[in-house]
Design a protein around this nucleic acid. Sequence first.
DNA 1: TAGTATAGTTAGGGGTATCTAACAAATTAT
DNA 2: ATAATTTGTTAGATACCCCTAACTATACTA
Lengths: 228, 228
Amino acid sequence: MKLFMFVTMLSFTEENYLKALLKLTSQNAEKSEAGTNEMAAYLGVKPATATDMLKKLKEKDLVSYQKYGKILLTETGKSHGIAILRKHRLWETFLYEKLDFSWDEVHEVAEQLEHIQSTKLVDKLEEFLNFPEFDPHGDPIPKANGEMPDLPKTLLSEMKEGDYCRVIAVKDTSTPFLQYLEKLKITIGSKISVLEVIDFDGSMNISIEETVPRNVSMKFADSLFVSR
Amino acid sequence: MKLFMFVTMLSFTEENYLKALLKLTSQNAEKSEAGTNEMAAYLGVKPATATDMLKKLKEKDLVSYQKYGKILLTETGKSHGIAILRKHRLWETFLYEKLDFSWDEVHEVAEQLEHIQSTKLVDKLEEFLNFPEFDPHGDPIPKANGEMPDLPKTLLSEMKEGDYCRVIAVKDTSTPFLQYLEKLKITIGSKISVLEVIDFDGSMNISIEETVPRNVSMKFADSLFVSR
DNA sequence: TAGTATAGTTAGGGGTATCTAACAAATTAT
DNA sequence: ATAATTTGTTAGATACCCCTAACTATACTA
């Protein structure tokens, strides 16, 4: 039996599992646990692979779960996950602001950069970027101590006719969605007026930055976070 | 038998072997080949491991060698290696210039960053840094097309009494040496006057930036590149 | 040139991260 | 409440990168 847990260096893969788990367990306020298949699907591996890794992460005391039970992060696991998220979002900000990457290009490269091992690098990068609070997608960037600036998010689909709001984040970060947003000239901060809600299919007529009205699907309205 | 060679993604490890090989085969003008033990020692692995990897790299047509023979890079291998070197040196420049890393801290982090896969990232980074020609150690940064700005290097040890020169690069990039340089307040561009050469042990009395004379060993003088 | 030292290779093995196929538990539906 | 479906696990295999131990080829040296 081990008496001391060395905070060993995690492999890229382990880090990806932690990040995935963090995402899956914190997307709804209610649900703070995930399933094996869910994880596997999210990471693009087979369930068997996820089970194996979960055992390893449990061994290292980063997740807590038992056979056929639900998975949740331990405190250690969570703070590791947050550290990775911090790096990811700082790099995204760097790519977007300093290197002129577009909104939908930053993610892929940040996926790689987030695994660079160097506390000094992250902290200096944060300083270089002037301690940003939110990344290009509008998501909060955790501070070095793990604190997370949290802002109240509402889905566009929750808005009513006549409502007026600003885009603060995307819920769906897939390339097709981001490209569609680009086409619509919607970015973080864009102003949206809800002109009409079509009961039939939940689609909406909206005006983006006071321009010509446009119909967007319920799926779309469900993928965009706004502030009232 | 394979008819087409896909330029497959190389693993970190493969990239490190190529980079090592590039370094080992281009340090002297005469020698453009390396040995297995030499490689293994350089990379901190056992010779057996190097042999294995060499076979793999040969399979991928990145090195050319045969059993018990010398190793050299193919054109493909060389351009891969140069691409990695380019990334390494651009990142070093970034860390040094933008994030206030010190001369001897940049290397370790750049070792990780050099493996990030994204042509756009490298090119944008280069642009962001204003197309630097030399990294913080004074080494030339390869261009996107593989071209390498080459400048004539002389070792400090080749200088004679009364000579005057400027530091343009370090030959030895080990931490102890870099720290010693820091202590001596020697950086790229520092001016050095050779006051006296001691025949007995090859050491020199030099003045750095016109300050008080100081004796440096032959080993030291052999580790510093200067321009006349 | 023969003997020794050095350099390099092969064989066999281990840990990680993945897979497929087969199985077991838990949940859902009738 | 039993059957069907979904969810999760185990077993066995592969590729990668590394190791040690034992062997072989080349180079040096006297």
